[in-house]
Design a binder for these strands. Structure first.
Lengths: 261, 261
DNA sequence: ACAAAAGTGTTCGTCCTACACCCATGC
DNA sequence: GCATGGGTGTAGGACGAACACTTTTGT
């Protein structure tokens, strides 16, 4: 599944019982709602241009190449289909039910985070280069509508994992730019957890966690200026267990080749 | 920081070799040490009978069949290679580095738990039926020696996950029989976490968790009799997220055939 | 009687939560 | 001045760690 608009021509056509391996990614970002000004968790999806599930929206992804690892395949297919390069990438789960696709496909699914300022920057870069990806649209991660394959279930699982992990790791920082106020950070937490947090208690929690380095800069413009903070780079972005040293999920820019057609 | 040690396109192998999908399982049980009487975390491994890594010990597993789901494949290959049927089974991670095997193999790895009383019972049943699995031996999960492929790394990750999960779910119960004392349960926790726990505080914690139902039976034989407890079956064995309702990792007996992939 | 495990009680420190309150800026 | 978000202080409750203590058995 999840061959988005990517060419599956390379796949051997005949053998019906071959098990193919695909890689897909659930990628989140937080965008400020123009309405009430609160942050909303958003997700880019790709419209399918062929059967099965033609015209339905699906997770970005593609086939695993014989010469690339799983992490690399996730980065590559994500860039090819959406033009985006995430700030954080982690494997989510392998989905392999027999009936999840008309042909037998095992999907290694990743989940990723994208910094708010990167969304527009990367899109603008693609616009300028004339290689803007087509068939990509942004959806409310909490209500993406009916998706292709078992992708609704996958998105639910990714959301569950994100909400869990925000409680015991620093992944929320993967959604912010280098400098941010505590209100920015709290907005991300509130978008993920979908509930309001006490500003006073939130401040103390993140200050005591030792992850934040206060700068001497402030953001002005409304009311009392708010201090800007930076991440402590010594601390891991997220707890990934003993696998964290093997491949730290740092993404290389990986020149996105125009291929969405 | 943008450079990740990824195989460049020059390394993309000549033939478009098919990517094969394997399923392996890290299975844990707690056995009482004959020496000091404390519980020890043990793990069955299978000796490889062919290249690569011939004669080295490896995780039980096998190839994914075209007509079976991932969970079913994990149960089947585990039974085929070790003759064991676990009490708990959950997907761990998908390993797919290009160089983790001479041929390109993506391994969907599961981890499983086995009740202490099931180990001997299942082994005795196989002895009687004359289909006792060969090339299977039990190892200390904390020091299994040098294993085939990347299986040392996989075992480390499974141990990390087990130690984490024992803190916020009831998986320890997957290692005990139906009736058990609080000392039995504590012994399991101590074997997993590899440290001693205060009996008094441990008692209150598990009693307040609502997972235990006290029976009116006691275990006698040494010192003051200890009350026997039973699990509250209404509570999930482990927190599996939104996937828990899809396939609750309950194992069907699935006739075990002796083999060693 | 004694040892040892089962089980209870109490104290202390830490962390989260709610909420009152002060501070600094734009208007 | 006044509204608003930034930032501090503080009291109360939940919970875990440490440990003293009582209970009940086998020997």
């Amino acid at each position: 599944m999840t061959q988005t608009s990517l060419a599956p021509d390379t796949a051997r056509a005949a053998s019906t019982d071959a098990i193919r391996v695909a890689v897909s990614t659930v990628i989140f970002t937080v965008r400020r709602d123009p309405g009430d000004g609160s942050g909303r968790l958003m997700m880019p999806l790709v419209r399918r241009t062929r059967e099965p599930y033609e015209c339905l929206w699906a997770l970005p992804g593609g086939w695993l190449d014989a010469g690339e690892g799983l992490d690399a395949a996730a980065s590559r297919t994500l860039a090819e289909t959406t033009g985006l390069t995430p700030s954080y990438l982690e494997q989510l789960y392998a989905f392999g039910d027999v009936d999840r696709s008309p042909t037998r496909v095992v999907s290694i699914v990743y989940w990723a985070l994208l910094r708010a300022d990167d969304v527009d920057a990367q899109r603008a870069a693609h616009e300028a280069a004339g290689d803007a990806p087509e068939n990509v649209a942004w959806f409310d991660a909490n209500a993406p509508g009916t998706l292709a394959f078992d992708h609704n279930e996958i998105v639910s699982y990714a959301l569950w994992r994100l909400r869990n992990k925000v409680g015991y790791s620093r992944i929320a920082h993967g959604l912010l730019s280098d400098l941010f106020t505590l209100a920015d950070l709290r907005e991300v937490y509130e978008a993920i957890l979908d509930r309001r947090l006490d500003p006073a208690n939130f401040r103390r929690q993140v200050e005591n966690s030792g992850n934040l380095i206060p700068t001497d800069r402030f953001r002005t413009g409304s009311h009392r200026p708010a201090r800007l903070y930076r991440y402590n780079q010594d601390v891991e972005l997220a707890d990934r267990g003993p696998l964290s040293d093997s491949e730290p999920a740092d993404i290389q820019p990986s020149s996105p080749e125009t291929s969405t057609s």
